[in-house]
Design a protein around this nucleic acid. Structure first.
Length: 932
DNA sequence: AATCCGACATCTA
DNA sequence: TAGATGTCGGATT
């Protein structure tokens, strides 16, 4: 369930008469607990309450009490041993009159009259697994408003099918934005309190809703007509008290869709909410989903939390402004200069969505300005920061509309906060008529026409020249001589390839493919002629490239939240050399952290933040893991504090190591791989004559020592076995999957369903398996030995008959830190690659003695593992167990690292930073490249 | 023919 | 329900 669904369920519950016996179950149901869970609780099987209430393990302890006993009961719940034992997150007591609850993790207490708890449902959201964004818990208003808007929107579209066309969606979106403005305006005295918007609509429209659209249209007409013209234009007398708003908001078509009865009810209900509680940033990200069929289910998926936004904005420019404020102290001239500077700062988000970044940037700058004005005793002074300096580009119409509205609301809120309601109101209307949020495709638009160059120079000519063809021109032209421009945002994260979900329909697949093609064309428009392999770049690279281009003309700096893969593996050397040049460099970065949004299920994505500018001096490197900062001389494209080095993939090891090969890829839909039972059956079916079943190891199989089996047959063997029922079943699975595939190679393989798509196995050698993916929690790469004749699947790499000293290198800390840095990753876990990591690993020249010493170390490691038989690789290399349970193995690895690192620098490395510095240094020497 | 990557996909402890 | 590992198509070399 998502937050709006919960809001709805809770509202329904609160409206019903209180039923003491049913309440706990109804409550749990409203938060999305499954009917089977609730059934088991009812039967008492899983109910652990020791107070006659309902206690669900890991969730909540609820007790319904006698009248007046609520507070007392809450204390009893808190002290109950059962509460602690079941690890309840919440306790809740109610008598149907009052309701009290506590979040045991934070200690926060909720206490309110029973009927009001529906408004406070945000408090309990962690129960539904929505725990990650604290702001959401305080945003009950935004969720409820969004839910009702959702209903209204769908109701209107259903009743006005002509508005549900591509051509009119923009009108519809514009209409919704006007409504939001009116609701906000009537609750904040922007409209005169005696003439409320909702009240007027309710009063003037028929109860059967028939003329609702006419009433609203008349009100909109009033807001689009200057006061002095109201009479001449024949505005109805009841609409005349409404002010002239315009600002583009009420320009254009003033058509209003028809309202049926329930639409009218929703409208009145929404108007009844308290709109002063709106959070422009959160509300925007939620409401934008309303107009998007795809996103409606995944509410808030585009929300970037305020702390995450500040991770971009603070290092980009806000920290500097604050430092300058600090520096200025009470010096009025310095303060004035800072204010003048701020008035010319433009913040530009070329992927602005509903304007989160712009709103937060605006609010933070107003905060600084307010401090300046206070120190200069000018607290009444109107803000010098023009709202129009907060520019954006957004592809979708509705969010673009909302972004402008969110900024308008943020401006009003800031005025109220720093200058008082009276001054805020006096200067608020009419709105500025200019539209400074551009609806368009950011990768196609010429950014210089959205943010005109501040000095002299032919921006447009430059841009045409650069991209080979004229770009779309937005033509926003404001004076801003001598200003600074800060580009920021959270562009869409789309990798070079995306996987369609397994069960996706043909239509879904086709749509995804179409979208992918459009994005490719966008990237081509940016990169054609500059980077050959543009098709393998993430979509965000387009934004970074355009920001870099913009920076060549304009005094600007840019920072984006980005998929972390642009700073890993193959994208690094493909992409970054085009960015880091001409004095442009990474002047700050936040390393990988996992993304959070408002959706109940967070997108499983790991991101980083990269800031680029021409600023020299020290760079700031923030850790995404622990929020620490380091001042470093340079940050390279791997987000490592070292010179700019690019490690390119190599097809063979460049340092005399033996080649590691990929495991064999089945591409079989699971047909060729099976467990021991099936293997047994197939063996007896085939008989002694046919030895076609072999042990098969993926990474999991090898690290957990379990192993599956696979069919490993020749064509002749296949012909002989294919009609046996057991075998036929396996081959059918393979043929079917391959026939359905879009990939030519796979399709072709449907004719030979006995064979793996890619075969790397050779004979019956000793084989070590290196997992393709391994958890970053491990201190050593869990390389495993496999039984003879085993097949290495494509979950890993195979090392056939390796010299033991190669194994010593492979399992060393040196190799691991190199792999961790220059290979790709999955989330933040290691992803081994032979071409990127192994073949490029810098190793100093080794004497025979060195090799013998290393071989001895490898042997000791293998012996130590055997000594702990039957512990699996997974257990042996569990960082938490190693010290206590497997000390010999730990010692053997320590000895191995000691010997190897002495070869590198004559002693152990102090830490990974030192390891990497040495490795990059050697790599630079080895490849004859100069460190920049 | 080999290899990398996934606003990933899917298991399992 | 999060941590660990799986899997295949599209693209590049």
């Amino acid at each position: 369930m998502n937050a709006t669904e919960i809001a709805e369920a809770i509202e329904i519950l609160a409206e019903q008469p209180f039923d003491a016996a049913e309440f706990p179950y109804a409550f749990l149901e409203a938060f999305g607990r499954k009917p089977t869970e609730i059934k088991r609780l009812r039967s008492g099987n899983t109910n652990k309450s020791d107070l006659g209430g309902v206690l669900q393990r890991n969730h909540i302890h609820i007790a319904v009490t006698a009248p007046g006993e609520v507070t007392h009961t809450l204390t009893a719940l808190r002290d109950s041993p059962a509460t602690a034992k079941a690890k309840a997150k919440f306790i809740l007591a109610t008598d149907g009159d009052m309701l009290e609850a506590q979040d045991l993790a934070s200690g926060d207490i909720l206490s309110c009259p029973y009927p009001e708890f529906a408004e406070k449902f945000g408090f309990f959201l962690p129960l539904a697994g929505i725990t990650t964004i604290p702001q959401l818990r305080e945003s009950s208003f935004d969720i409820r408003a969004t839910r009702l808007f959702n209903k209204l929107y769908l109701e209107l579209l259903q009743d006005n099918p002509d508005w549900d066309t591509a051509a009119r969606r923009a009108d519809m979106n514009h209409f919704m934005a006007r409504l939001i403005f009116c609701f906000y305006a009537e609750d904040t005295s922007i409209f005169h309190p005696s003439y409320p918007f909702t009240g007027t609509v309710e009063k003037m429209s028929e109860r059967d809703s028939s003329n609702t659209h006419e009433v609203i249209a008349e009100l909109f007409r009033a807001m689009n007509t200057r006061k002095e013209n109201h009479e001449a234009q024949g505005i109805k007398s009841w609409a005349r008290p409404f002010p002239y708003v315009n600002g583009g908001l009420f320009g254009g078509s003033l058509d209003v869709p028809r309202f049926n009865k329930s639409a009218r009810n929703y409208l009145i209900h929404i108007g009844g909410l308290n709109w002063t509680k709106i959070n422009p940033d959160i509300f925007g990200s939620m409401i934008q989903a309303v107009a998007d069929d795809e996103e409606r289910g995944a509410l808030g998926m585009h929300y970037t939390s305020v702390p995450n936004i500040l991770k971009v904005l603070n290092p980009l420019f806000l920290d500097d402004l604050r430092a300058k404020l600090e520096e200025a102290g009470d010096n009025k001239v310095k303060l004035l200069n800072l204010r003048k500077r701020m008035a010319k700062i433009r913040v530009f988000d070329p992927a602005c969505g509903s304007g989160n970044f712009l709103v937060i940037a605006y609010k933070e700058m107003r905060k600084i300005e307010a401090e300046i004005n206070q120190r200069r005793d000018e607290t009444d002074r109107a803000s010098d920061i023009p709202l129009t300096n907060f520019r954006g580009i957004e592809l979708r119409d509705f969010p673009a509309e909302i972004a402008r509205l969110a900024l308008i609301i943020a401006e009003f809120q800031s005025d109220v906060l720093y200058r008082g309601q009276k001054l805020a109101l006096a200067e608020f209307l009419p709105l500025d008529a200019q539209n400074w949020i551009v609806q368009g495709n950011a990768l196609r638009l010429d950014w210089l026409t959205v943010c005109e160059p501040t000095g002299k120079g032919g921006g447009k000519i430059f841009a045409d020249d650069l991209y080979g063809a004229p770009l779309d021109q937005a033509k926003i032209d404001f004076e801003n001589e001598g200003g600074e421009t800060y580009i920021c945002g959270n562009p869409p994260y789309i990798g070079a390839t995306t996987k369609a979900p397994k069960g996706a329909s043909k239509e879904t697949k086709a749509r995804l493919k179409r979208e992918a093609e459009m994005r490719k064309a966008d990237l081509e428009a940016v990169f054609r002629g500059r980077i050959d392999a543009w098709k393998s770049l993430d979509y965000v690279c387009g934004w970074l490239m355009k920001a870099a281009d913009y920076g060549k003309v304009e005094n600007s700096a840019a920072a984006f939240v980005s998929t972390n893969s642009i700073c890993q593996g193959e994208q690094v050397f493909r992409f970054w050399p085009s960015i880091i040049k001409d004095q442009l460099r990474i002047n700050f970065a936040v390393t990988s952290f996992s993304w959070k949004n408002l959706a109940a299920k967070n997108a499983g994505v790991t991101v980083c933040i990269v800031g680029i500018s021409r600023q020299s001096g020290m760079a700031k490197l923030y850790s995404g893991k622990d929020d620490t900062v380091r001042d470093v001389p340079n940050i390279n494209a791997y987000l490592v504090p070292y010179h700019d080095v690019y490690v390119e993939n190599k097809s063979k090891p460049i340092q005399g190591l033996q080649a590691v090969v990929n495991g064999s890829k089945p591409a079989d839909g699971g047909g060729l791989i099976f467990d021991a039972d099936i293997a047994h059956q197939l063996r007896s079916e085939a008989g002694e004559e046919f030895q076609v079943i072999r042990p098969f190891f993926g990474a999991h199989d090898a690290t957990h020592g379990e192993g599956r089996y696979c069919i490993w047959a020749s064509k002749a063997q296949y012909e002989a076995l294919k009609d046996l029922p057991g075998f036929q079943k396996r081959f059918d699975i393979v043929a079917e999957m391959r026939n359905e595939s879009d990939k030519e190679l796979t399709k072709a393989g449907a004719d030979s369903p006995y064979a793996f798509q890619q075969v790397r196995q050779r004979g019956n050698e000793t084989v070590f398996q290196i997992p393709r993916h391994s958890s970053e929690e491990r201190e050593f790469f869990p390389v495993a030995t496999l039984p003879k004749g085993a097949i290495v699947g494509d979950g890993g790499f195979a090392f056939f008959d390796p010299p033991l000293w190669n194994i010593a290198v492979l399992v060393s800390k040196v190799a691991l830190s190199w792999i961790a840095t220059v290979c790709g990753k999955i989330k933040t876990d290691y992803r081994f690659s032979n071409t990127l990591g192994w073949n490029t690993l810098p190793v100093p020249p080794l004497t025979e003695k060195n090799k013998a010493d290393l071989s001895y170390c490898a042997e000791k490691i293998l012996l130590a593992r055997e000594a702990y038989f039957p512990a699996t690789i997974a257990e042996l290399y569990d960082a938490e167990k190693m010290d206590e349970q497997f000390p010999e193995l730990r010692d053997a690895h320590a000895a191995n690292d000691e010997v190897l690192e002495r070869i590198y620098i004559g002693r152990r490395f102090k830490n990974d930073t030192e390891r990497l510095e040495k490795l990059f240094e050697l790599y630079t020497k080895m490849t004859g490249k100069k460190a920049a």
